[in-house]
């Protein structure tokens, strides 16, 4: 963002985001907005997504000691909660919650980064620029979901004893010490699909590209797609669940399951969760 650019487009940069119509199929550079819908009722908590993410995104295995220190790097983690009013036994089972970067539209992490290493892309992703990051970790402090992971160690030198480096995905940077990283919605896959589509004078088709977690999920609990395209499955699901990307709080019917986590903080997340269902009569 040069000063000239800033001055010439002052009103654009001063626009509060997200605004109605920010993403539009007819607008160049805004025809994509990647979003997710995650059904907690059919998520079984099996961790296949986590392992797929390790494989796709070159996540280091940190080992027991560092895991204990809180240095684990799982971009997507499965949280297991017990019910608060649980009696002697968890009679309704556990609640599993896959938590990854929510790619907030008004991301708390973006405003606080002193060097602008994390910023919004045109297709609605919360990007992390590893080369720009100086490692102040302010973004992690301000992330309400705590899904940003900091490279506390120089993992490239320890986490992959030979020949494990042969497995590393060449499309994804291996991060060095001192920088922040997080779920990217597998941006390397998205970019590849976008440029492939561009060479064919079309937009990316629904289902043409999915992140590794979505691809692996045995129950297909995660749906991914371009929410700008009203015919995409994810857009239809959001609409059906009465969750509006541009609204901070949804006003929905009781029977509707869609919600976004910590909406009250107004980060406008791009991941919609569908409530867990339990048969209370059982």
């Amino acid at each position: 963002m040069s000063i000239t650019n800033l001055l010439n487009n002052w009103s654009f940069y001063r626009q509060k985001r997200p605004y109605q119509g920010q993403y539009d199929l007819n607008r160049q550079y805004s025809e994509y907005k990647w979003a997710m819908a995650l059904d907690l009722d059919i998520c079984t908590g099996c961790n296949a997504c986590t392992t797929a993410c390790y494989a796709e995104n070159n996540l280091p295995v940190v080992g027991k000691k560092r895991f204990n220190q809180g240095h684990v790097m799982h971009w997507i983690r499965i949280e297991r909660y017990w019910d608060e009013n649980m009696g002697e036994f968890p009679e309704q089972g556990a609640s599993f919650l896959p938590m990854m970067c929510q790619q907030c539209e008004e991301a708390p992490c973006e405003t606080v980064c002193p060097v602008g290493a994390t910023s919004h892309t045109n297709d609605g992703l919360n990007s992390q620029n590893y080369h720009r990051c100086v490692g102040s970790r302010y973004c992690s402090v301000n992330c309400p979901y705590k899904v940003r992971y900091f490279n506390f160690w120089n993992y490239p030198s320890t986490a992959w004893p030979a020949p494990l480096p042969d497995q590393l995905n060449p499309d994804v940077t291996v991060r060095t010490k001192g920088i922040m990283e997080k779920c990217t919605f597998c941006v390397q896959r998205l970019n590849e699909a976008k440029s492939r589509a561009r060479t064919e004078y079309r937009l990316v088709r629904d289902g043409e590209v999915v992140p590794a977690c979505v691809q692996a999920c045995p129950t297909s609990a995660i749906t991914f797609g371009n929410i700008v395209d009203p015919k995409s499955k994810v857009a239809m699901m959001w609409k059906n669940q009465q969750v509006d990307l541009y609204k901070d709080m949804q006003e929905k019917d009781n029977s509707v399951r869609g919600y976004r986590i910590l909406e009250d903080l107004r980060p406008f997340p791009s991941v919609m969760y569908l409530e867990r269902v339990r048969d209370m009569e059982a």
Partner: peptide
């Protein structure tokens, strides 16, 4: 790396 300081996520 900052790991030796025993900082962690979330105590950064």
């Amino acid at each position: 790396g900052l790991g030796v300081a025993n900082l962690n996520n979330p105590q950064v």
